[in-house]
């Protein structure tokens, strides 16, 4: 990888200062994505600011019944946290369905939020990729795009966001706490990631030098689950994933939260489906109508057209299972 300077600040102020003053600085967490991208020459920071020494590695209860998760909590620790497992099973399941045991021990919450796409042409530095090299074109449009996105895409980019955790966070209405030299701000996770438009290289709402410090979860919905569909039984990125929470009273849906992974450039909150589900019957036909409505805007290519029906089927199956388990608390 391209040589770089390495700093490991002792506190957040020093980290923010380093990021603001060192040219071409990047924050480093567990390294599971950034180190790989640096070795491939896709990321070439001049300075790496290792933030793993900062004190953002705890999970705390919030007064309203929610949770505050430090950005440096490792994926495995968060998945194993009894509060997460008990109240936010969708989050624990999403984390456990991602990567491998070793990688989950390394990867942080903040890093997971900022991981970059696995599009084949993003990784192949000899290919055209507007995300990697703005203006170079997109070889995925007419190339191998089986894994690419069908919602929220543009003519310049059809890459997906690869995270599982973020899909669960989107369904849970999580809020991301961000700190910069100018102070702290809070961003709903559904607003953190951007759609590609004409600038697929800009992936998030973060300003240069801003650091994710925590994620806050509001009180949990009744029951939730994560369903991931992929090309092998484990250790693969999602073709389609569904994070869902459902509350049903007397056969009527009183609360529906739905987010999709593997099908969009960002964790996709399925608000249209939620709108149709809420107040309607908790039955298969209604689930299917909602799923189809959400996917009506799908823009597919040769290789990924199947994702429309796969996503529909996965949404229906997940909601069916949730409703059959009597998701009433």
């Amino acid at each position: 990888m391209k040589p770089f300077a390495y700093v490991k600040p002792a506190d957040v102020e020093a980290a923010l200062h380093a990021a603001a003053t060192e040219p071409g600085a990047k924050f480093l967490g567990g390294g599971t994505n950034l180190v790989d991208l640096m070795r491939e020459g896709i990321e070439q920071p001049q300075t790496v600011v290792d933030v793993t020494g900062l004190p953002f590695d705890t999970v705390e209860d919030l007064p309203d019944g929610g949770l505050r998760i430090g950005a440096l909590v490792r994926n495995s620790a968060l998945a194993a946290d009894p509060r997460v497992r008990d109240r936010y099973p969708v989050l624990s399941q999403a984390l456990l369905s991602g990567a491998s045991g070793q990688l989950r021990n390394m990867a942080t919450v903040g890093g997971n939020l900022l991981q970059r796409t696995r599009c084949l042409y993003f990784y192949d530095t000899t290919s055209a990729c507007n995300k990697r090299e703005p203006g170079s074109g997109c070889d995925a449009l007419d190339g191998f795009n089986r894994s690419c996105a069908i919602l929220g895409v543009s003519d310049s980019c059809i890459a997906t966001h690869p995270s599982d955790m973020c899909v669960a966070l989107a369904a849970l209405d999580a809020v991301v706490e961000v700190r910069g030299t100018g102070g702290t701000r809070r961003v709903p996770v559904t607003d953190l990631h951007r759609l590609p438009g004409d600038t697929p290289e800009i992936e998030t709402d973060l300003a240069p030098g801003e650091l994710i410090t925590a994620v806050e979860l509001p009180p949990a919905p009744a029951d939730s689950r994560y369903r991931k569909v992929r090309d092998r039984a484990s250790y693969a990125f999602a073709l389609v994933s569904v994070a869902a929470a459902l509350e049903v009273s007397d056969g009527t849906v009183t609360l529906a939260r739905l987010a999709l992974g593997g099908i969009a450039p960002k964790p996709w909150r399925a608000r249209e489906a939620e709108r149709l589900l809420t107040g309607g019957p908790a039955d298969e036909a209604a689930f299917r109508r909602a799923a189809e409505a959400e996917l009506a805007a799908a823009s597919v290519r040769d290789g990924n057209a199947f994702k429309t029906s796969l996503a529909t089927a996965t949404i229906v199956a997940t909601l069916r299972e949730l409703s059959q388990e009597g998701a009433v608390r």
Binding site: Y6, K8, V35, R39, D50, S100, Q102, N105, M106
Partner: peptide
């Protein structure tokens, strides 16, 4: 693989299994 995709480089760091290929030694 040198990219965290095979596990052949697995070591224990303070008893925790990690992929040493994606770990910078300085960390």
């Amino acid at each position: 693989c040198d990219q965290g995709a095979c596990g052949a480089c697995t070591v224990l760091a303070d008893g925790v299994r990690i992929n040493s290929c994606l770990a910078l030694a300085v960390q």
